[in-house]
């Protein structure tokens, strides 16, 4: 009873007291873009066209594209003659190789069948072309998200140390949870251990890091800061090191369209958001940056590298 009363009092006090520092108007708005993103414009006018030409693979009329992997069902599962298959998941694929995703392929996009005869309405032709243009824009390599990620060893013994890491990511990304009325904006997220790993003193469920996923204009703004303020000022850094040519082309990292590299503590301090007020950040830590593209399958990582080179991120051989 006393607890309920306390709760009621707390609710009443929060609704009456007005704190401008924490007040957020309760409005159902979804904010749109506030500016024309510079790097997005660069991608649209220059990079997209070049990537289309570079990644185009020509196929003649007899070409049949590889079909996506289909799960093999239990015998008799389709017509329901096998009672064993009822409500059962399909069997696991045999063999020890996990099926890899098919490569995205700019060359294989069937030309829309546009009839020139007057019987076809002008409108449907336009829609068909517009759909084809959208399909092509989806196929050409583009950046989907940038993820910043900090794994902190200190947090295994001292959970509170993650607060500084969260603060760092918050400052670098400017992302907050539910920002601009978009529920997909998750802000800075806490990462918990997934496995018990004795050698790293990691236990399942223990907070061990933080991450933030940037999309849209925020992503391009971050990329702009990175390539203009940070990378050119790094000392003795030749570029992101690529895997050796003999590396397995079908490994998950090579086929998932993600390019990652790490920035040291010294590099993170070069971000203007931190540099302008360095005293405030006594414990800046290094972080990983993951660039995620739409590419999948064999060659996906190389295509993503080509995309990032278009944004002036240098790559070197070992």
């Amino acid at each position: 009873m006393a607890q309920a009363a306390r709760k009621a009092a707390r609710v009443a006090s929060t609704s009456v007291l007005y704190n401008p520092q924490t007040y957020t108007p309760n409005v159902a708005l979804k904010l749109g873009p506030t500016h024309n993103s510079r790097l997005r414009a660069h991608y649209d006018t220059t990079v997209a066209e070049n990537l289309m030409y570079m990644h185009y693979q020509h196929h003649d009329a007899s070409y049949t594209p590889p079909q996506p992997h289909r799960k093999k069902l239990h015998p008799g599962a389709e017509d329901g003659s096998n009672p064993y298959a009822a409500n059962r998941p399909p069997p696991r694929p045999r063999g020890n190789k996990v099926p890899r995703p098919l490569a995205t392929n700019v060359g294989f996009m069937p030309r829309p069948h546009v009839q020139t005869s007057s019987s076809v309405e002008e409108g449907s032709k336009d829609t068909e072309l517009a759909n084809a243009a959208k399909r092509l824009a989806r196929t050409v390599t583009h950046l989907k998200a940038i993820q910043l990620h900090i794994m902190s060893k200190d947090s295994l013994t001292n959970k509170a140390s993650l607060i500084t890491n969260m603060f760092q990511l918050r400052v670098l990304s400017g992302a907050t949870k539910g920002e601009g009325g978009h529920t997909t904006n998750k802000g800075v997220e806490l990462i918990r251990g997934r496995k018990n790993l004795q050698q790293w003193k990691l236990r399942r469920g223990t907070p061990c890091g933080v991450k933030v996923t940037l999309k849209g204009d925020k992503m391009y703004d971050f990329l702009g800061t990175l390539i203009e303020f940070v990378l050119p000022r790094l000392r003795e850094w030749g570029g992101v090191v690529m895997p050796v040519p003999s590396a397995n082309r079908d490994s998950p990292s090579m086929t998932s369209g993600v390019v990652s590299f790490g920035l040291s503590k010294e590099a993170v301090e070069l971000f203007p958001q931190i540099e302008v007020n360095l005293d405030l950040y006594p414990r800046v830590s290094g972080m990983h940056i993951h660039f995620m593209s739409n590419e999948r399958g064999r060659g996906a990582q190389n295509k993503t590298r080509a995309l990032l080179s278009g944004f002036q991120i240098p790559f070197t051989r070992r």
Partner: peptide, 15 residues
């Protein structure tokens, strides 16, 4: 625009 460029390039290589 991208689509037009694509079709042209496709036509060039497909002839």
């Amino acid at each position: 625009m991208l689509l037009e460029l694509f079709h042209l390039s496709q036509r060039c290589l497909a002839r």
